[in-house]
Design a protein around this nucleic acid. Structure first.
Lengths: 224, 224
DNA sequence: AGTTGATCTAAACGAACGTTTGAACTACTT
DNA sequence: AAGTAGTTCAAACGTTCGTTTAGATCAACT
């Protein structure tokens, strides 16, 4: 069956890309893991590059649709009042993290791959990511601006950057600190817990300096 | 001269790794850019893998020494009182970000590379990073625990994760949002500004739920 | 001047890469 | 039963990879 082979290849490629990266993963490794012929990739996808593109497109598009959907749900169900900052953040970060939970359909593997790809420098990857993320970032930026009227646009821009950084790192799941930590804590992070921890952290960061915190950051610390 | 050739190769490799990643960068590309013979890499370093290792070791070790040095400076100069949370965060994030400013000696290029490598999945990279980061993480963990007595160890563990995530993403400098942003803001981020913005964001996040914020999340971490 | 040890050079090694080819196989139509 | 369009297959294409080799070049010391 046509459909099956393509899917099998996509799944195998996804897993290997997440484990080793794009350049380090050969078509032979992919087809071998998928149990299909080497030529299948070029037959069904045209090239390795096109395969990479489809691996991402297949998951990112529904994931971002889910984000937008949750955001619109928040905006319509609150009546006149604005959705809370925490709700906005959760709408943005929960879809990928919940995807990480579903180990069955390969979502978990993809999330790791996506997390790594946020910092992928290749031109192809950058433009592809940009195209897929543009509408999401735009919508959320407006929502955050309404939820944080006291934060100037430039500052908000940076804080959204910071949020993306936190999310990308957790998605990549490198767990640098876990590898190191002398005091090992709860090993399999519960997704609901993680979303809540992250939401609280990011929300506090986004509100900082608005009179909500006691943060006494004097510029003096910076220069040394 | 022995010293020079090794250094020239290290610089060229560093730049290309940052631009394209490890696997996508060939020894021929490195030696060509460095203007040396192809065999030089194997002669001076033994293998490509050993070259990669040295590229990191050369910069990370002094960088982490600087972090520890700033931390010790804080701890000794405050007399009896503990250093502020903001000061601790700045001691951790400023060295790499300031390194990103020095475009002359290649520091800027290395910071991008290092940021990307936080999420590098290869076994070699992971264990190398672990060995270099272990002492730093341990020391800062203790300092943060003293500065945030109300945050339970497990929660603190996650919040340090979040801090590393923010830092790694900014170091990688992918600027996903900048590529997208319809409203372009200040283009070359001033390092001092960035350190302050990031410190404020992370500090607020680290303190969240301690009664310092109005964060309305229902999480059970409420501290008197 | 000549020997020695370190460094550089050009050339080649086998292995692995992405891609292409033409024939075999499969399922379905007429 | 023959034909056809879609798919799979083994094999090979030319290229590039990391690494190795043997000889040239150089600086320093007896």
């Amino acid at each position: 069956m046509t459909r099956e082979t393509k899917t099998i290849i996509l799944d195998a490629a996804e897993a290997l890309f997440a484990e080793q990266g794009f350049a380090a993963t050969s078509l032979r490794a992919i087809t071998s893991r998928a149990g299909v012929n080497l030529a299948s990739v070029n037959y069904h996808f045209g090239s390795k590059e096109a395969l990479v593109d489809l691996v991402f497109r297949r998951r990112i598009i529904p994931m971002n649709r889910e984000r937008i959907s949750r955001l619109e749900g928040l905006e319509s169900h609150t009546g006149g009042s604005e959705p809370s900052l925490e709700a906005l953040i959760a709408a943005f970060i929960a879809p990928p993290l919940e995807m990480a939970r579903d180990t069955g359909s390969g979502g978990a593997v993809f999330v790791r791959l996506l997390g790594r790809s946020y910092t992928e420098p290749s031109e192809t990857m950058q433009t592809a990511m940009r195209a897929m993320y543009e509408p999401v970032i735009d919508r959320f930026k407006q929502a955050f601006a309404r939820a944080l009227p006291g934060v100037p646009p430039e500052e908000l821009y940076w804080r959204m950057h910071f949020m993306v950084g936190v999310l990308a790192y957790m998605m990549a799941g490198t767990d640098m600190m876990r590898l190191i930590a002398s005091s090992r804590v709860s090993d399999p992070p519960e997704i609901g817990d993680l979303v809540r921890r992250m939401t609280d952290f990011v929300a506090a960061g986004m509100r900082s300096g608005q009179g909500y915190t006691l943060s006494g950051s004097d510029g003096g610390i910076v220069e040394a």
